[in-house]
């Protein structure tokens, strides 16, 4: 077999598949596309595209500089499009109470010690470590992130807007 070109998606160029119903309801599959969702989202709006009880996958439009976020548990992010810096701070005081779940948006950069930063591009995954505060910075064209986390106060659910409804 010959080498075939690998097809990626991007904000500017994506093709969405579909659910072809035989004997079912397409809503059961909650079918969406992260690029389409991000194309209609506000910067750093955390839109759930997957939900498995308390766990979620959020699609995030990475445009400009985000608020500072934190969580009491690990999170992970996978870059699907663009180039983004993530800056980390270890706050002097825990930014989120122990046991609270989901991403918390902080009102400002917390006082604390710089942990460092990463620059990630499409296909790169970064750890958003528990107990840290972090901020996304994107000075280029808008990008797309997926965040593996737990549903929290900043998770936006708008399934009827993002999912295939009609057979």
């Amino acid at each position: 077999m010959s080498m075939q070109k690998t097809t990626f998606g991007s904000l500017e160029n994506f093709e969405k598949g579909s659910v072809q119903v035989i004997d079912d309801n397409p809503k059961h599959y909650a079918f969406s596309n992260v690029f389409e969702v991000a194309s209609k989202s506000k910067p750093y709006e955390k839109v759930a595209v997957g939900k498995n009880l308390k766990y979620v996958i959020e699609a995030v439009r990475a445009e400009g500089t985000s608020p500072w976020f934190a969580a009491a548990h690990d999170e992970a992010t996978l870059v699907m499009d663009g180039e983004i810096e993530i800056h980390f701070v270890k706050p002097d005081q825990p930014p989120v109470p122990e046991g609270k779940e989901g991403t918390v948006r902080l009102s400002a950069e917390p006082k604390g010690k710089s942990m460092g930063w990463v620059k990630v591009r499409r296909g790169h995954m970064a750890l958003l470590p528990k107990g840290s505060a972090y901020q996304f910075r994107n000075t280029g064209k808008p990008g797309v992130l997926m965040v593996q986390t737990i549903q929290g106060e900043n998770t936006v659910e708008k399934w009827s807007e993002i999912c295939q409804i009609k057979p």
């Binding site: 097809t7 990626f8 998606g9 994506f14 093709e15 969405k16 598949g17 579909s18 659910v19 072809q20 119903v21 035989i22 004997d23 079912d24 397409p26 059961h28 599959y29 909650a30 079918f31 969406s32 596309n33 992260v34 690029f35 389409e36 595209v49 997957g50 996958i57 699609a59 699907m80």
Partner: peptide, 18 residues
């Protein structure tokens, strides 16, 4: 084993398997 759906997924698509 009765057929219920065919799901075509392309890059960036997300779907649940019930």
């Amino acid at each position: 084993g009765r057929p219920r759906a065919k799901v075509t997924m392309k890059a960036g698509d997300v779907a649940a398997m019930p």
